[in-house]
Design a protein around this nucleic acid. Structure first.
Lengths: 337, 337
DNA sequence: CTGTTAGCGCATTCAT
DNA sequence: ATGAATGCGCTAACAG
């Protein structure tokens, strides 16, 4: 797009206007407004009054330049349409706002390249960046974060960078145990993005579960991460003759649930379904979805807490791993026949 | 929180470093890097090479100060947890990113006071602000936008401020007509926030529909705007003996759907339910939800388009009103006996 | 075509 | 306790 014309700031109230009105120097205004105790109380009042009358507020941009601090952090997410990232963003936003920080969001649209670019671009106009479930390969991530500090990672780790993540492995093991306890021995796993960190963690959990439960068979079905993928996988699931389906996440589970029911398959009588994440809608499906509750909002809040420590120059908070809690609802039941 | 220490910028690469390395003046570096055609091509190359070697990028903050332009816009939403606002934010974010603009988000948490404050605070660090469904009373809104320009409103209007909104009235009338056509004569409306613009528009649509269809009775039930509210209203809906329920939005509809089904009520045989918004999950409920599809992502994109025009100094784009489309799915059917 | 100079608006030395 | 001067990093007007 063409370059907009230079903004007309002629009407802007500056610190000089306040100084003139209060009959003091610029420095005094600055000091008074910033609560510097070395300024005479009476004078300070006069200055504040003048500022109020003029409806003056210091330019954040000018302050940013001189202070080297923007009072803003950036959050880069792979997809603003993903309920989990939305919840993380919300938690982060609230927490940052409580500390008077602003949030710049950027959606990398699942593009590794965009992620690289956005991370750098947003970092330059903020005091730090929070990378949410970055898709970058590990070696690139390791390299990138070096030049980005302060950085906080969500669902990834790199060097000594503070991070907060969910323990996918343990949570998935809990889901498998739940199904096993219900008598399920033929289970299908609707896989997410191949090679992604989240998918790999689930695969590992499955592998070790199967190793310990030779009586149980878990078959992987390539799927995806959204509704459509889940719905599209329904045929494969039905054909598999499995008694239970483990979906990569709740979106997939909901797509599958919807599709199999349309095919006359009863849930959980004919097929048990478990999701992952516990997105807000999970409890309102019919029947309500059994899933593993990832405290996404809290993860966002914790990510901010880490960032704040970094910003304050405190020791980087220790990495945090939260354990998603198995939430049994209506889509799981005893294995059929 | 305590003030962070002044940032250490000692390692920062500045334009002076590039100038020194390329053996030219600061201005030449600035010109070369900004693609000013008056600079000798060969020299420009040399400068760019130097910049690349030093991994230099101009400080956005310094540029913002001198250009009076931040290349960032603010978006204030009442609730980042609301799927419709999430979709608007996403559409806006994508559109702005395509024009190389960044997005600062702020969540007013449905607080009118926070809305006021955030609008001003975010505006000062950006080039313009998009107010999404502001909760401010009309007179305050009229006053506020004056000092905020450029401003774009979503789902509200004020003076000559560009806006984009959904035509709730017509869409709701379409829903009522749909129900009427199915034989429904006793309908309940699960109301949203009393006095809110969105709720008032729906009430008006209902009033004029009833005026034209004396055979039909639409009863208002105070409810709310989320799942819980919808679920909580189920008893009242069932008692009302209505054959159809018109929910304030999809969230309410889903909460209601889930709750009535747990009570053994069949949808749509015993009760038809219609929502509003067509959030992504609407098509995956059981049965899929009949609703009015609000093109939230497009609204976000259009809001950005309006803002861009304002930023470019073009004539403010005309107000846009989009018509949510009636989307008939499985929760509506012929009225029972 | 290029270099020198002057701010953008503010916080913070340094003097007083 | 206050004012004058300096500079954050950059772009643009002004000379040459």
């Amino acid at each position: 797009m063409p370059r907009p014309p230079r903004a007309d700031r002629s009407t802007r109230v500056t610190i000089a206007d306040v100084a003139a009105r209060a009959g003091v120097s610029l420095s005094t205004v600055s000091r008074a407004l910033n609560g510097n105790p070395t300024v005479d109380p009476a004078l300070a009042e006069r200055v504040k009054a003048a500022a109020a009358e003029l409806d003056y507020t210091a330019s954040p941009v000018a302050r940013s330049l001189v202070l080297g601090r923007t009072q803003t952090v950036a959050v880069v997410v792979p997809d603003l349409g993903n309920p989990t990232f939305q919840a993380i963003l919300r938690g982060l936003s609230h927490a940052a706002a409580a500390d008077d920080y602003h949030v710049l969001v950027a959606d990398s649209a699942e593009s590794v390249e965009a992620e690289r670019v956005l991370a750098g671009a947003t970092r330059r106009r903020t005091d730090g960046v929070i990378l949410c479930a970055p898709r970058l390969p590990q070696d690139e991530l390791d390299r990138l974060v070096g030049g980005l500090r302060p950085v906080v990672l969500i669902n990834r780790a790199a060097g000594d960078v503070p991070h907060v993540r969910a323990d996918y492995r343990t949570a998935l093991a809990a889901e498998l145990t739940h199904l096993h306890g219900l008598g399920h021995r033929r289970i299908v796993f609707l896989a997410g993005a191949p090679g992604s960190v989240a998918n790999t963690a689930r695969l590992e959990a499955i592998a070790s579960f199967v190793a310990e439960h030779p009586d149980t068979q878990v078959t992987e079905i390539p799927c995806g991460v959204d509704f459509e993928a889940g719905a599209a996988a329904s045929a494969a699931v039905l054909e598999s003759e499995a008694t239970a389906a483990l979906a990569f996440n709740d979106l997939v589970a909901m797509g599958l649930l919807s599709a199999v029911q349309e095919n006359g398959c009863r849930v959980p009588e004919d097929l048990s379904i478990v999701g992952f994440d516990d997105i807000p809608f999970a409890r309102y499906t019919t029947p309500p979805l059994t899933t593993a509750a990832v405290p996404a909002t809290e993860i966002g809040g914790q990510a901010w807490a880490r960032m704040r420590e970094l910003l304050e120059g405190a020791e980087p908070g220790h990495p945090l791993t939260v354990l998603p809690e198995l939430t049994v609802r209506g889509t799981t039941g005893p294995a059929r026949g």
